[in-house]
Amino acid sequence: MGASKHPVTSLPAGIIADAFGRAVAAATDYAGATAPNPPVGCVLLDAAGEVLAVEAHRKAGDLHAEARAIAACRAAGSALRIHTIVVTLEPCNHHGRTPPCTDAILSTPARHVWIAGRDPNPRVAGGGAARLAAAGLSVGWLAGLDHADAPRLAAEAERLIAPFVKWSTTGRPFVTVKQALDETGSMIPPPGHKTFTSETSLTLAHRLRRRADAILTGAGTILADDPEFTVRRVPDHPDKRRLLAILDRRGRVPADYLTAAAQRGLRPLVFAELDEALARLGTEGVHEVLVEAGPTLTAAVLAAGLWDEHVVIAKGDPDRITILRNHDRKG
């Protein structure tokens, strides 16, 4: 579709900000299910700012968020009302397993597109925003939205695709370290217990596990706790099979544990060195690896600067959650 012959009034910043919030939330629901693609959310609005569709990319090979939202509008008979498209990532402009999202957008009467972040993937041509603008659509970026919530929404959208950015630009997974500490700063649970954190913190831990493509642990943790490493406190992604990377230099993990892990839907891999494990996970297409390990391995990952995000759960009433990002780490 070409450029509109008449100017079309853009929607207020508050409506756009609300739509970005909905799009981020929709994409977050599928974080961990979309590799090798990033999680993306999309919201379609009519000229009055009414939400016509909220959709997300759900898995590789499935419709992208924009195409899914447009298809939902067509099914509901509201496609001719599409006025503004709000999406968390620049629409693709290349043919992959699905057609370009720019084609889908240009097949609608939409005249405005708001985008949270540019596509960072060096393997594709990119240029989605440029193509839409060349076709006469107004293209806006979340960073330029004049609204108090814009910085927070931009940070949330950036974190959403951070694992994809890391993997697509370096070939390495995004490393999240989860660390639970008691009142004394110790990671060791009391005798007879596997944890000491609250129910809320345990649910958070399972959410972190749900969005990860792999778990990284050490032989000591397995021998001490016999952990399942499954997602139980929140619904898991259907058919998701995570890698379980085990650092076991001395071959202490028994074969029956590896067999049981495979029966639980995990794919166990044993490594002697941390860097070897991370390199292999990258070649396996892992976007995000969650480190769930004891004090020694956790400290080693942090000290080596191999982490991207550090989630600290400090026991208290209530537990205190701190999330740190290692923005200064290079590659």
Rank of each mutant, 00 (worst) to 15 (best):
L45Y: 10
L45R: 02
D46R: 00
D46T: 10
D46M: 07
A47C: 10
A47S: 15
A48G: 14
G49K: 02
E50G: 06
E50L: 11
E50N: 10
L52S: 00
L52N: 02
L52E: 00
A53K: 00
A56E: 08
A56V: 14
H57V: 01
K59D: 08
K59H: 12
G61H: 05
L63W: 04
H64Y: 09
E66C: 11
E66P: 03
A67M: 11
A67S: 13
R68C: 05
A71V: 07
A71N: 04
A72P: 08
R74T: 08
R74D: 13
R74V: 03
A75E: 14
A76C: 06
A76V: 12
G77W: 10
S78M: 11
A79M: 09
A79L: 05
A79H: 08
R81D: 15
I82M: 01
I82L: 02
I82W: 00
H83T: 06
H83D: 14
T84H: 02
V86Q: 03
V86H: 01
V87G: 00
L89I: 12
P91V: 00
P91K: 01
C92W: 02
C92F: 04
N93T: 14
H94M: 14
R97F: 12
T98L: 05
T98G: 04
T98D: 07
P99V: 07
P99M: 11
P99I: 14
P100E: 09
P100L: 08
P100Q: 00
C101D: 13
C101M: 13
T102I: 09
D103T: 12
L106N: 07
L106A: 12
S107G: 15
P109E: 02
R111S: 15
H112C: 11
H112W: 14
H112R: 06
V113W: 05
V113D: 06
V113F: 04
W114R: 01
W114E: 04
R118I: 02
R118L: 05
D119Y: 00
P120G: 09
P120H: 03
N121F: 02
R123K: 06
R123D: 15
V124H: 06
V124C: 02
A125T: 12
G126I: 00
G127E: 11
A129E: 10
A129S: 12
A130R: 02
R131C: 09
L132S: 07
A134M: 12
A135G: 05
A135C: 08
G136L: 07
L137Y: 00
S138A: 14
V139S: 03
W141R: 02
W141L: 15
W141E: 14
W141Y: 14
W141P: 10
L142T: 14
L142Q: 15
L142C: 13
A143E: 15
A143N: 13
G144L: 09
L145Q: 07
H147Y: 11
H147T: 02
A148L: 14
D149S: 11
A150L: 06
P151T: 00
R152E: 13
R152T: 15
L153C: 01
A154S: 15
A154K: 03
A154L: 15
